[in-house]
């Protein structure tokens, strides 16, 4: 149907694609730790050793866990399996709230205490008008 050259060129493209996909897959696999933007409290708990470098912890802000004292905000990040206490001093983003997603950047004191230098609010994939949210809340 098609000439030999056409088939060879097609084969060439296919081989390039397969090679690239495999290479990329292997690279991403080995870099997994650096590709993730944050770690969950459970992953922090299972760390073999605590290193002093800057990391990010993410999860939900536990309900009724935010306490604000003079110039410090304390709260708990949870992934519903494990928790980690976070202390932070500074301004928090508008969307930072209990029961919402959060990513804290900073340093681990130990497996349960984290001292944040920056707080990012994580938005979830739900979009709806306030009335709908209220209706859902009433259910």
């Amino acid at each position: 149907m098609y000439g030999r050259k056409v088939k060879l060129r097609f084969l060439f493209v296919v081989i390039i694609l397969i090679t690239l996909i495999l290479t990329t897959f292997l690279i991403l696999r080995s870099l997994e730790e650096n590709v993730v933007f944050f770690q969950s409290p459970s992953e922090i708990k299972s760390l073999s050793e605590i290193d002093k470098s800057k990391i990010r912890v993410g999860g939900m802000v536990k309900k009724n866990s935010i306490s604000i004292s003079s110039n410090e905000v304390n709260f708990i990040i949870t992934d519903f399996k494990n928790e980690i206490n976070v202390t932070y001093s500074g301004a928090v983003p508008n969307l930072f709230a209990e029961g919402k997603g959060v990513v804290a950047e900073g340093f681990l004191k130990d497996r349960n205490f984290f001292s944040a230098t920056k707080i990012l609010a994580k938005h979830d994939e739900n979009y709806m008008p306030p009335e709908v949210k209220e209706a859902l809340g009433e259910k």
Partner: peptide, 23 residues
């Protein structure tokens, strides 16, 4: 695949979308 700051897709062809129809 990874933990990202960016939220996952709201619109899914196969399952229910998590975005309200008015949006």
């Amino acid at each position: 695949w990874w933990n990202t700051l960016h939220q996952p897709a709201s619109i899914n062809i196969l399952s229910k979308s998590s975005i309200h129809s008015s949006m």
